[in-house]
């Protein structure tokens, strides 16, 4: 009983993809969240909507267009080919890029909300106390927005672990390259291996439950009711 070798490889791959995606999302999502939180530009609306699109679109739609964009004739595909990397669909990095789009709102929105909640005043005060822009970010924004960053990390990771439709479109089903837990479960069910499917599925439920409980407990403690602002 327990996990097969294929299951373990899928779990390991899922953790790898989710970790890399979350790390990249924090790096890319933070400046975007900062901009969205503070801009008065007209573009705040449209850009905010684009960030939120994965919340409402079927993952297959997202996957379909990402597949086209990363394919040999798509803009990303042409770019990666020119760089000599080849095309990204059905590769680990292809899945990471797709996951970044897919989980974007789950990282950007908690950080954006946290930065908006800080407001202008502590930053102005820090500026009058000789702190330059980077200094203000690390000494004021990061500590004050910490609950937002933690929520973003947990949700970004958990949401990437839970993806299926995008993976199937962009990654296919290649063992140790793109076969993540959700795809593995699908395979088990297709092959009528219900016991194996149970092990992974129940594991996912327990994992998700623990993660969400952590998020809610954490946010209650900080008396912040907003987790994601949709």
């Amino acid at each position: 009983m327990g996990f097969t070798e294929g299951d373990l490889s899928a779990i390991w791959l899922t953790i790898k993809i989710a970790s890399v995606t979350t790390a990249l999302l924090l790096i890319l999502g933070t400046p975007l969240a900062w901009w969205l939180a503070r801009t008065r530009s007209f573009w705040k609306g449209p850009i905010g909507a684009i960030v939120a699109l994965p919340l409402v679109l079927p993952p297959t739609v997202l996957g379909f267009y990402l597949l086209l964009a990363m394919g040999p004739n798509g803009p990303i595909g042409k770019f990666t080919t020119a760089l000599g990397i080849g095309t990204l669909p059905f590769t680990f990095w292809g899945l990471v890029i797709a996951s970044i789009f897919y989980s974007l709102p789950f990282v950007v929105q908690p950080i954006q909300n946290a930065i908006e909640a800080i407001g202008e005043k502590p930053l102005e005060a820090a500026a009058t106390l000789r702190a330059g822009p980077w200094d203000r970010f690390f000494s004021i924004v990061v500590p004050l927005a910490r609950p937002g960053f933690i929520t973003a990390t947990i949700l970004g990771f958990a949401h990437t672990v839970g993806e299926f439709g995008v993976v199937l479109m962009v990654g296919g089903n290649i063992p140790e390259v793109t076969r993540v837990i959700s795809v593995q479960i699908y395979d088990h069910v297709e092959a009528m291996e219900y016991t194996q499917a149970h092990w992974l599925s129940a594991g996912m439920i327990i994992f998700s439950f623990i993660v969400l409980t952590m998020v809610y407990l954490f946010n209650n403690k900080k008396s912040t009711s907003k987790i994601i602002g949709v």
């Binding site: 005043k121 502590p122 102005e124 005060a125 820090a126 500026a127 009058t128 106390l129 000789r130 702190a131 330059g132 200094d135 004021i140 004050l144």
Partner: peptide, 18 residues
């Protein structure tokens, strides 16, 4: 920029870092 001016500033509400 503000952070290079040799000023001290006291806001209406104290703006302490909590």
């Amino acid at each position: 920029p503000v952070h290079q001016r040799p000023i001290g500033y006291v806001f209406q509400e104290s703006a302490l870092f909590e």
